[in-house]
């Protein structure tokens, strides 16, 4: 069953690699290059899951996450944070703001795919 995944990152190469991985896993992919674009695309395409970078221009990932959770329409959307910020405090902050998973860059492609799969199946991992 095909799901729609939103990939948000300001690094085109990251977007490209994640997009490739998701498509290979059989998902439909939409992308955004910054935080505001992410919210716009989110409202337009209603994806089933969002892979979210943190350090981005115009609304960073934490802000996007907060906004998504505050909106009742998207409050339940699974969010996977994919960030180069690797400190424990940042990971905790991301989870506290409502991310369902937090993966640090550089990431294992297998782990990413597995986590996305779990989240889409409703298994909550933290």
């Amino acid at each position: 069953m095909s799901k729609k995944v939103l990939v948000v990152d300001d690094e085109p190469n990251i977007v490209l690699s994640v997009e490739f991985l998701m498509k290979r896993a059989g998902h439909e992919v939409v992308t955004a290059g910054d935080g505001e674009e992410a919210l716009r695309v989110l409202a337009e395409t209603k994806p089933d899951l969002m892979i979210l970078d943190v350090m981005m221009p115009r609304k960073n990932g934490f802000e996007v996450c907060t906004d998504v959770r505050a909106n009742p329409e998207t409050a339940d959307l699974p969010i996977l944070m994919l960030s180069a910020k690797g400190r424990e405090a940042e990971r905790e902050k991301g989870l506290a703001l409502g991310a369902n998973a937090y993966i640090t860059k550089p990431f294992s492609t297998h782990e990413l795919v597995a986590r996305v799969d779990e989240l889409l199946r409703g298994v909550i991992h933290t």
Binding site: I14, S17, F107
Partner: peptide, 18 residues
């Protein structure tokens, strides 16, 4: 610095694995 290092590394690893 680590952030700046992680970003290119992430791409390299991801594509290498692919």
């Amino acid at each position: 610095v680590t952030h700046e290092l992680r970003t290119p590394l992430a791409s390299i690893r991801a594509f290498s694995e692919i």
